[in-house]
């Protein structure tokens, strides 16, 4: 009976995350449109896109490996949802909490990128292979700064558990302000992880057709799109939980509204970044990440270590 309840709860949570992901996609597209002086899509647009794609024909290329081709979107969804279970929402307590959950979240968020790579690789189209290789190249560029920038607050809080981190920072809110550089680095790295402008080389539709997803259509593409939407929510929630842990003990209702407001802030900043920049070349992105982003994250770690030393 309790197992049945757990499954029901997980399904509800999955639906909630899917709903939130679509809402976030709409807000992002609307903000993008408004910043370009356009009206933008109506509120149901992501849902209409999803239903339309689900109702379309699935084409699996003759040359592709059908098993891998079909499995990858499911795997992407699963990994993103699993990562979501580890992140605290309105309280400081996530559903699954243990010492080391920060690292687990970052690694679970790497799996979708790997599935994009494998899906693109196994569809054996030239364009999707170029996109897949670019996805992987990008992964090596932004993954280290992202991990380093999440590491710095953990060093200051003396814990690897995201729950204890949130607890520490909500008790000492001033310490959260010292992580400003890290939060900027994490946000830029998240933009790379979500493959959005200026880091959208893997699916650059003006040069390599559709990139990684060139051969995907119908239901499988819908799943990939949903996974990306959910990844946006999970990535924003991670940044919110690590860098903005304010007002965590004000009850579920106010806490939830605060959580949504914080996510909205992150989405606004990401949309702003998407609007004001144009696409980089792949080697420009790698150079940018290793020359500026990784050192900035290291500076953040040095600040955290120094603070640690001063406190002691």
């Amino acid at each position: 009976m309790s197992a049945l309840l757990l499954i029901l709860f997980l399904i509800l949570e999955f639906l909630f995350l899917g709903f939130l992901g679509m809402a976030v996609e709409f807000i992002d597209r609307k903000l993008y449109a408004r910043m370009q002086n356009r009206i933008g899509p109506p509120w149901f647009q992501p849902f209409a896109d999803f239903v339309k794609l689900v109702a379309k024909e699935d084409i699996i290329p003759e040359e592709a490996n059908p098993m891998m081709f079909k499995l990858m979107p499911v795997l992407a969804l699963t990994a993103v949802f699993t990562a979501f279970l580890h992140i605290p929402l309105w309280d400081s307590t996530p559903l699954i909490s243990f010492n080391g959950s920060v690292i687990v979240i970052v690694y679970l968020l790497t799996i979708p990128t790997l599935t994009f790579f494998l899906g693109g690789w196994h569809s054996t189209s030239l364009f999707s292979m170029i996109g897949a290789v670019r996805t992987l190249t990008q992964l090596f560029a932004y993954e280290v700064p992202l991990l380093l920038s999440v590491l710095a607050p953990a060093i200051l809080a003396h814990t690897w558990s995201i729950e204890e981190m949130s607890e520490f920072y909500s008790k000492n809110p001033l310490f959260a302000l010292t992580n400003a550089i890290g939060s900027i680095v994490a946000m830029i790295a998240l933009q790379g992880k979500l493959e959005r402008v200026p880091f959208d080389m893997p699916e650059a539709e003006t040069e390599i057709v559709g990139g990684t997803f060139t051969e995907y259509s119908g239901r499988l593409l819908a799943m990939f799109r949903l996974a990306i939407d959910m990844e946006t929510v999970v990535g924003a929630s991670l940044i919110v939980a690590v860098f903005l842990p304010f007002g965590l003990h004000s009850g579920p209702l106010i806490g939830f509204v605060l959580y949504l407001a914080k996510i909205l802030l992150v989405i606004l900043l990401l949309a702003l970044l998407r609007t004001v920049t144009a696409r980089l070349r792949i080697e420009q992105m790698v150079v940018f990440c290793w020359k500026y982003l990784a050192p900035a994250a290291l500076v953040q770690i040095i600040i955290s270590l120094t603070l640690n030393w001063i406190i002691k």
Binding site: R29, A33, R38, P41, E205, G210, T214, Y216, S217, L221
Partner: peptide, 13 residues
């Protein structure tokens, strides 16, 4: 995009 029309690069989408 008001009407949901998007330009796609690949015929599959």
């Amino acid at each position: 995009e008001r009407f949901g029309i998007l330009l796609k690069g690949t015929p599959r989408h």
